[in-house]
């Protein structure tokens, strides 16, 4: 195949200059921020340690705040997070990712970790989450109960049964003896939320915490059947952690009063 006319010489030079300056900027900033794992326990003072926490995407808000609190309580310690889908995170940890703490959105993924014997201390449940109906702010399909989701003509979006929020939705559906006809079964709860906030979908099933985080962009409808599908969040330190004491301290922060209050503030329930 052929691409558009080749670059002129001066354009190429220009590009070269830009690439070089970009590289310079990158390398300088890397040096300034101490990018990489330069903070080795043995060589540097114990007061500059980095704690790496792998946590489910739904914990992003709460854990970021808790991380700042933890850094304030432990001078010289830096907490970095990797937020993502629980199963992605487990896969990465199984492949040797340098995590010190893992917080999962469900017990199933934590079980994968313990099955491989990668956990330090035994996992502990620290929060739970339940489903809530979410609609666009004007609620165009007039949804006010779980039954309404099975109505004809309602563009319903839920998670695919393969992912945690989808299996929870399936449980609720079966418990209520309803048959949903979703227009889409999304990969993640964020995708469901996006379809609702953009107005494409009339309704979706997401977690209480997601509705809370979305604020005015959506309208939440709670329903009693949600109690039949409670998602439990476990947390554990990892066996290969080089900062075992700090990892333990972080888990304790999450399980303690401060952590629990923060979680409750974000809409999480007790485990």
């Amino acid at each position: 195949m052929a691409f558009p006319p080749p670059m002129r010489w001066d354009e190429a030079m220009n590009l070269r200059t830009r690439v070089i300056s970009a590289l310079v900027v990158l390398s300088t900033s890397a040096a300034l921020t101490g990018c990489g794992s330069s903070d080795d326990d043995k060589t540097s003072a114990p007061k500059s340690e980095t704690l790496t926490v792998y946590a489910a995407a739904s914990l992003t808000g709460v854990f970021t705040d808790l991380g700042k609190k933890f850094e304030a309580d432990h001078p010289g310690v830096k907490v970095t997070f990797s937020f993502g889908g629980s199963s992605d995170l487990v896969t990465q940890i199984q492949q040797g990712a340098p995590a010190d703490v893992f917080a999962s959105a469900d017990t199933k993924n934590m079980d994968k970790l313990t099955a491989d014997g990668l956990q330090g201390d035994a996992p502990e449940n620290f929060a739970s989450n339940t489903l809530e109906i979410v609609t666009p702010p004007d609620n165009p399909a007039k949804i006010d109960s779980l039954d309404d989701l099975a109505k004809k003509g309602v563009a319903l979006v839920i998670c695919a049964p393969e992912v945690p929020c989808g299996s929870a939705a399936q449980k609720v559906e079966e418990g209520a003896k309803l048959t949903f006809k979703p227009v889409s079964e999304e990969q993640s709860v964020k995708d469901v939320l996006a379809k609702v906030t953009s107005g494409e979908a009339d309704a979706g099933l997401v977690y209480v915490t997601d509705v809370k985080a979305a604020g005015d962009a959506v309208n939440g409808v709670t329903f009693p059947e949600a109690a039949s599908a409670v998602n439990t969040y476990p947390i554990a330190t990892l066996k290969d952690s080089k900062h075992a004491a700090l990892a333990k301290a972080f888990v304790e922060l999450v399980l303690g009063t401060v952590g629990q209050e923060a979680l409750a503030g974000a809409g999480f329930a007790k485990p």
């Binding site: 979006v157 889409s184 079964e185 999304e186 990969q187 995708d191």
Partner: peptide, 16 residues
């Protein structure tokens, strides 16, 4: 996945 969603036989292509 952003525009079409994901539903078996309707929008869920092989990569999805």
């Amino acid at each position: 996945i952003t525009f079409a969603g994901s539903l078996q036989g309707v929008t869920r292509t092989l990569p999805l």
